[in-house]
Amino acid sequence: MIEVTRLSRRHGDVVAVDDLTFDVKPGAVTGFLGPNGAGKTTTMRLILGLDAPHAGSARILGARLADLPEPMRAVGALLDAAAVHPRRSARDHLRCLAVSNRLGRRRIDEVLDLVGLTAVAHRHAGGFSLGMKQRLGLAAALLGDPGVLILDEPVNGLDPEGIVWIRTLLRDLAAEGRTVLVSSHLMAETAVTADRLIVVARGRLIADTTVEALARPDGVLVRTPEARRFARALVAHGASGVEPDGDELVVRGLAPRRVGELAAAEGVVLYELTPRRASLEEAFMELTR
């Protein structure tokens, strides 16, 4: 559980986070979305106590991070995957972190195995690709088996296989009842992984919603050789905005099933009948404009 209450932070004259209030609930992946420079990273740093807010507060499990005795056991964070000492091995990197919260060697082996870095654990982290560094950063976040995960753009630099892997991992972690906050500037990517969405722009909360609510139904696409005739029939039965474009029609105001029934009743041949959903990217751009 993460509670952000009226959080504000300026960088000089620039307002990075502006009176932001939201909760991140356990048992779900929450996507933290916004264009570049929207204040996502600053918000995460404020939640983690790395930067100090000018107003408001952020609580993790009801406490400030600094008040948790062994914070790795409560919160795992991945802010900057490139932040590793280039001449320290992956295993040593994790060991330096693990001992600070009295976590044992066995747990290091477990997380290395979980992120698939066991074979390269002895190598210097400086030689890792961005994707491998993301995996190492995720291993560090998971070391304490925390109930809360805060991940800043963890998909960056991962190959397609890695992207599928991290999606599954995040969904599994949330299914175990953990609180998972994942930032991204890519709507489509986040929509696949996240259940809930918190959208910010220019430091302000724009939407606190679900993927379903954003991707609301948006008409029915029909292809038929008799587009003009069918359009007239559809309008007569209450459809709106039906403008034939070649053999294509976008029907609004009628359910897909009703469109199919009307096609049968009118004896119209259909090549295609597809319920459409609003483009998430468009919804996102609309929201953050």
Binding site: G49, A82, A140
Partner: peptide, 18 residues
Amino acid sequence: TVEHLTRTMALTLTTVPR
């Protein structure tokens, strides 16, 4: 300075926030 150079200070302070 090494922790600032390699930007690991954020990691250090999320694991030992005091």
